[in-house]
């Protein structure tokens, strides 16, 4: 029982990071049918920003990271994605790869390809003991922040005027536009929101791993993408659930695989993902909106 609770706590925190990454990708996909692989680089650059600004005062560094990643997301949209907005999804996808690799190698150039150690908020690694379950404080912080962000996003989408517009745009962009929803503004807001999600992942990831590298975003973007696919492209709830599922799967395999197979954990994760998609090719919660695009 204790072991199970332990795994559950780890799965929830790992799943939180994946869910936030998936949400950042799912949000943009919902509105403009763009799978933004550069989302991983948003996270990576956030991590470098955090390292560069961490010295004097941590809260300020977190704010700086948020600001920098939001700005980066907005600039990426403006410079790279807006010119090809009306192109077909393949062009959008290739553009996102181009942006992703550009940013990745830009940072290889500036910061070098090697991972850098960065001791950030390591006091949060101390465990918080509940009965016999030992949960690092950071995991609790991660889960808490994720829940708050999810609640805030749900409130925004359900209860604000802008949220209704954004949902309408995700369901049928052209019709929403016809009704007066301002395309540039709604897409910019979606990118800013994905920037916030990416920056939060930057902070939580660096605090958990204590290191960063130019390629660190790849894994997160890939898992985020896979999570949105499992959840059903176009469904934000699906993206979140998909993220938590992949996180849970990763942690469960980590705990249950024989020691000599553990280095191949990701192979097992993705093999199971393939099986899930064979059984449900459209994902677990396929968004209604993905069905028809006028």
């Amino acid at each position: 029982m204790t072991a199970f609770l332990q795994v559950l706590a780890d799965a929830a925190s790992q799943g939180s990071l994946y869910a936030l990454s998936a949400l950042g990708i799912g949000l943009i996909f919902g509105i403009m049918r763009l799978v933004n692989f550069a989302h991983g680089e948003f996270i990576m650059i956030g991590a470098y920003m955090l390292m560069l600004s961490a010295a004097p005062y941590v809260p300020l560094a977190i704010l700086a990271t948020l600001a920098a990643v939001i700005l980066l997301a907005l600039l990426t949209e403006r410079i790279a994605f807006r010119p090809v907005r009306r192109a077909n999804p393949t062009t959008l996808l290739v553009t996102s790869f181009a942006v992703s690799f550009f940013l990745q190698y830009l940072f290889v150039l500036i910061e070098g390809a090697r991972p850098k150690g960065f001791d950030f908020l390591s006091s949060l690694a101390e465990p918080f003991v509940i009965g016999e379950v030992r949960v690092p404080k950071l995991n609790i912080v991660t889960i808490g922040i994720t829940l708050v962000l999810l609640a805030a996003l749900a409130f925004f989408l359900k209860r604000t005027h802008f949220g209704i517009q954004m949902r309408a745009a995700a369901l049928n962009f052209r019709m929403a536009r016809l009704l007066g929803v301002k395309a540039n503004r709604i897409i910019a807001v979606a990118f800013a929101m994905s920037g916030v999600l990416a920056a939060v992942v930057s902070v939580l990831y660096v605090a958990a791993r204590g290191e960063l590298s130019p390629v660190m975003g790849l894994q997160l973007a890939l898992v985020g993408f896979v999570s949105t696919v499992i959840g059903g492209m176009g469904s934000l709830l699906g993206a979140v659930v998909g993220g938590f599922l992949v996180g849970a799967l990763t942690v469960a395999l980590q705990a249950s695989l024989p020691l000599e197979l553990r280095p191949f954990r990701e192979a097992f994760v993705f093999a199971i993902v393939i099986v899930v998609l064979l059984a449900r090719p459209r994902g677990l919660f396929r968004g209604r909106e993905a069905r028809e695009r006028v």
Binding site: I164, Q165, R167, A168, L171, A176, G180, R288
Partner: peptide
């Protein structure tokens, strides 16, 4: 907008 409520459909046109 198939996933939105009736009133949200109309409100989306009021932006």
């Amino acid at each position: 907008f198939q996933g939105l409520s009736v009133i949200e459909n109309v409100a989306a046109g009021l932006v």
